[in-house]
Amino acid sequence: MNNHVPPPDEEVSRRLLGTVSYRDRLSAGRLMPPVGMLREDVRSLKELHLLLTPDARSLPGVNLDALAEWVRRTLGDDDLAHIVKNINNSAESYAEACLALFELVGLRLEQARQVLDHTA
């Protein structure tokens, strides 16, 4: 599987580094024993990256189908959405998908920053 993602254009980059409205947030959470399930909605790619950051105490809670759709519709990043979908379909486990997504989202954020740096 090729998870290479071409750099976003300037417009997409701006959206990727921005924050969406409250109503456009992605419903998400966290499983943290013994606290339980916590709501941790996401309104930006940066927040998603922090949500997915590996942590010995907890697991991020994301509906991966909904995530791909959110990236496509709300962030307007078809390339990223496509790879999110690929990862969701191919990862051996949910946790592994989250790890791969953490790497991917980190890369995408860096790409977006570079695009905007160059155009500044």
Partner: peptide, 15 residues
Amino acid sequence: FNQIFTSVSAAFAFA
């Protein structure tokens, strides 16, 4: 009882 939920759900998450 809820260690059942957390442990089993986590096991499913990690396959």
